[in-house]
């Protein structure tokens, strides 16, 4: 059974974090653009970008968590993830978005839009999946 203990927040969403793209270029997390993800995935031999559309957002098991249901890729596979409300996702053409942008900004100093049903997020799958 899964634990509902608090999940450690990844450090790389903090404003100013240095991110290395697949071609070696370094960018701050807040400066990333949709093309950076697309171009990095094009270079990658293992990963490919998929579009994941937000289908539902429900309350999670603990008050700071949400369960987000995505429709992934052309197959529209249904995938659910439980994350903290401040967890940011990158929305195509829009940038960082979370279920609670105020909290994301407060914790990470990362400017965020509100993640909504219908938003299309950048996600990854394995190229070798057949």
């Amino acid at each position: 059974s899964s634990s509902s203990s608090p999940v450690a927040l990844p450090p790389f969403f903090m404003r100013g974090s240095i991110i290395q793209l697949a071609d070696g270029e370094l960018k701050r997390v807040e400066d990333l653009k949709t093309e950076d993800f697309i171009q990095s995935a094009e270079i990658s031999s293992e990963l490919k970008i998929d579009s994941s559309t937000v289908e539902r957002i429900d309350s999670g098991q603990n008050p700071n968590a949400v369960v987000i249901q995505f429709s992934v890729g052309e197959l529209k596979a249904q995938v659910c993830v439980e994350v903290l409300v401040e967890y940011p996702f990158f929305v195509f053409g829009q940038g960082w978005s979370s279920c609670c942008p105020d909290r994301t900004t407060q914790l990470f100093e990362l400017s965020c839009a509100k993640l909504c049903v219908g938003d299309v997020c950048v996600s990854l799958t394995l190229r070798s999946l057949r």
Binding site: F12, F13, L75, L126
Partner: peptide
């Protein structure tokens, strides 16, 4: 004596959720 450490650099893919679609074949 604390040596100055370089700033951590994170790979781009760590920022992206890995959502493997269910294969329906």
């Amino acid at each position: 004596n604390v040596e100055p450490r370089s700033v951590p650099v994170f790979p781009w893919h760590s920022l992206v959720p890995f959502l493997a679609p269910t294969q329906s074949d």
